[in-house]
Every structure is written in C-alpha cells, then in structure tokens.
C-alpha cells in the first residue's frame, strides 16, 4: 500500500485516476482505518487530502456555505455561520462518534461512506445540499441524495471524489433539525434518524419542507408524503400526527442487531414529529 498526501486538488485527482488497484481517499479516516484494520478492504493507494488547503475550508457562497471535504466535525461545529443557518446539519455531524471522532470525522466522509444510518446525511438530504464531485473529467454538482446508492456503495466513478458540499441560502423563518434514536446517549449507530428542514410564514404556517429518514431503508429516504403533511399547515398536534404517520408509512426497515422492523417503523414517526417541532421552534426564533 502507498500513502500519499498531495497538496493540490489536481495532484489528488492525478493520483486517484492513475491507480489501477483499490484507491481510497483519506480525510478523517474514522471509517477507512477501521475498515482497513478489520480486513474489510486492502487499498493499494491512500490519498490523504488534509494537506490541500481548499478542502480544509468553510467558505461563504451565494448566502450559503461550501464545506470542504477535509473539514472535521469539530471544525464545523465551531463555525458560527453554518451553525446559525443549518443547525440541523451541524447537529447531525456532531452526533457522529465521540469527541475524539469529531476531531477527525468529516461531513463528506460520512456522506461517502454510504451507510444508510449515517448521522449527517438525513439532515443534508433535508437541506437539499449539493455535493461537488471532482475527477479526471470535469467536476459536477450532484444532489447529496444521489451520492449513496446502497449500503457502502456510491455513484462516484473510479478516480472521482467529493470535493465539497454546498449548503444553500434559505429564506427567513427557516430552520432544520436532526434527531436520531440510539439505545445509549452517545457512541451508537443510529437505529432511526430523522431530518426536517422547513420554512414558516408570518402566521407560522409551513410553506416549504423536506423530511428525510435514516436507517430505515438501504439509503437515506426523502419522504415527500411527510413533507406534504407539513406544507400548508401550522405545526400543531394534528399536523405532527399526520407527519408521523407519513414517516412511519415510508419506512421500509429490516430486523438487525440494532433494532426491529416494528420498532424502527414506529420510531420513524416519533422522531420526525420531534424533529419538526424543534425545526419549527428554531424557525420561529429567527425573526
């Protein structure tokens, strides 16, 4: 195995495109190194992208934020701008692993690891975030919901990697929230995750919403029926019950060591409801 730490994006692209064997991008490494030591993968090349300055940056762009692929969870959580605009995305990222893992793990890595239970992805999908994919050909912008195609599988072609994720600007009285269910208070993989992003008008009626669920299907789900339950309504008990029913109906989970079909289906609704309540409270707090 070779380890390379290029200092430019071009150099990284050249290295990855030139590798005939298995190549992997290393940013935080909190998934990659476990997979290597667990003999799940044996890469021939590892490209450490943390020495590429652009990828370590969070930059303002069109009223939104572009988050580089090598920005750690801890760095993201310290960025006041992103925390104010997309608190749900930040809380999703901050739920990944421990404080120690936060020191390394990245939002882009969490996205590209393509776990259906990834904590940052439901909030990203709800946020309609866009990933910038770079590779030997031209770079392309892809909705984050199209990066993962199944557990551990992505739509990235050989030699491609995600350079950054863009979180767009949003109207006033908008906010988001992410909640997950785990048996402990920390250190677990989500049994169910729910992200809600919404906008309210002056009368607290929801005018726009996106609802997503994690860990209840082979990939993170965008649940349009659940969003419909919110749009055009005040976030009251009846609306929330409709939202919960729509979320539970959309879940197609499996039984595994972390939860049962029955449990995940029910809790999908519970979490969607609670996340919507938090998102709405946050939106109202933004005058």
């Amino acid at each position: 195995m070779r380890y390379e730490a290029p200092e430019t994006i071009d150099a990284a692209v050249t290295l990855l495109a030139g590798e005939k064997g298995v190549a992997r991008v290393l940013a935080g490494g909190t998934d990659l190194i476990i997979q290597m030591s667990g003999d799940m993968i044996e890469p021939d090349l590892i490209v450490d992208i943390k020495r590429i300055p652009l990828l370590k940056q969070i930059s303002e762009e069109d009223g939104g934020f572009r988050i580089g692929a090598a920005v750690s969870g801890a760095e993201l959580g310290e960025h006041a701008g992103v925390c104010a605009l997309w608190p749900g995305v930040v809380e999703g990222v901050e739920l990944i692993g421990s404080t120690q893992v936060q020191g390394r793990a990245t939002l882009v890595g969490n996205l590209c690891n393509a776990s259906p239970a990834a904590d940052s992805v439901p909030a990203l999908v709800a946020a309609n975030a866009v990933a910038r994919v770079i590779g030997p050909k031209a770079s392309r912008d892809v909705p984050v919901s199209e990066i993962a195609t199944g557990p551990g599988k992505t739509s990235l072609a050989a030699g491609e990697f995600v350079e950054s994720v863009f979180l767009p600007a949003r109207p006033d009285r908008s906010s988001d929230a992410y909640l997950r269910f785990i048996p402990r208070t920390e250190m677990d993989i989500a049994v169910v995750g729910a992200g809600v992003s919404l906008t309210l008008d002056e009368n607290d009626v929801c005018t726009d919403a996106r609802v997503s669920l994690g860990a209840v299907a082979a990939r993170v789900l965008l649940v349009e029926e659940a969003a419909k339950a919110l749009i055009g309504n005040k976030i009251d008990d009846k609306t929330l019950d409709n939202l919960a029913a729509a979320a539970s109906a959309a879940a197609t989970p499996i039984n595994d060591k972390r939860g049962t079909v029955e449990f995940r289906t029910k809790v999908s609704g519970v979490l969607a409801k609670r996340a919507a309540t938090i998102a709405a409270d946050r939106a109202k707090g933004k005058k």
Binding site: G29, I33, I34, I46, D48, K50, A74, Q100, G103, R104
Partner: peptide, 19 residues
C-alpha cells in the same frame, strides 16, 4: 488511546502514523 494532534483531541488508533 486519546491524544491530541495539533491541539485537537483524537483517537490515535484512528489515525495513521504517516499523517
């Protein structure tokens, strides 16, 4: 295995020596 790298708390089992 907690250590700090450039002041940031990390698990040293989840970092490569080369880094």
């Amino acid at each position: 295995c907690s250590i700090t790298i450039d002041g940031r708390l990390v698990c040293s089992c989840l970092a490569l020596g080369a880094e």
